[in-house]
């Protein structure tokens, strides 16, 4: 569905990504895995059109995808450092969002339990609820590809289970997810494929079975793959 070919990016002399190429199959949940500074967020920004690669190209079903307006129509992106209007009440933001998008996803709102905090200021919400609001913003649309940068921060294990179920449910609606995750056990619970980055370079990609085979692991686990591939 989405093909990245030899994507490179340099920030003021520092190489952030070097010739990264991989494919994202339709309806997959692809986890971008790597240590801090591996270039995960940069890669997601490039896919979302919020950064230009210095070289390389991105193809959607074989057609080059570079114009921001084209990417915007396809991709929903939740940046890691997103602080949704802290002075707004949740209901005010939702009113604005629903009014401008022209739709509200009541089921998603209930699933994320956002109505219970509708009169609270966003800046006064717990981190978990702020993450829920960010997730709601990213999912309250009909875009085919959803990019989430570290979406599981701030959730307790029970909340996390709800969120993972919700992503699976959205994935069943033929939405493709690309998620940057630094907690390996969370990634293992949700992802169907993995892209492993180290210092801006692609180290390995594929599903768990192919990764285990590549690294000769008897008991396939992401932690083992991570240790073998990245350390």
């Amino acid at each position: 569905m989405l093909n990245l070919r030899e994507i490179s990016k340099t920030y003021t002399g520092t190489r952030s990504l070097t010739d990264v190429s991989f494919a994202v199959p339709e309806n997959s949940i692809t986890g971008i895995i790597g240590p801090n500074g591996a270039g995960k967020s940069t890669l997601l920004k490039i896919i979302a059109g919020f950064e230009h690669p210095d070289s390389g190209e991105m193809l959607f079903r074989g057609t080059p995808l570079s114009a921001f307006d084209d990417i915007k129509r396809l991709v929903s992106y939740m940046p890691e450092q997103l602080e949704i209007y802290p002075d707004y009440r949740v209901s005010e933001f939702l009113g604005f969002l629903h009014g401008t998008v022209g739709r509200a996803d009541v089921g998603l709102l209930e699933l994320l339990n956002l109505m219970s905090v509708r009169n609270k200021k966003i800046g006064h919400l717990s981190k978990g609820y702020r993450q829920r609001l960010k997730l709601y913003f990213s999912l309250c649309n009909d875009k085919r590809i959803v990019i989430l940068d570290e979406p599981f921060d701030g959730f307790d294990p029970i909340q996390l289970q709800d969120i993972l179920d919700m992503i699976r449910a959205e994935n069943r609606k033929e939405r493709t997810f690309i998620i940057s995750i630094h907690q390996l056990h969370d990634a293992e619970k949700i992802c169907t494929r993995y892209v492993l980055l180290k210092e801006g370079s692609l180290v390995a990609e594929g599903d768990m079975a192919s990764l285990a085979e590549r690294f000769g692991l008897e008991e396939p686990s992401l932690e083992q793959v991570f240790m073998e591939a990245l350390l």
Partner: peptide
């Protein structure tokens, strides 16, 4: 810009 809410507005999508 700092809060990344421009990303929110652009994706709604506003031009």
């Amino acid at each position: 810009r700092r809060n990344n809410t421009l990303a929110v507005l652009l994706q709604i999508p506003f031009s």
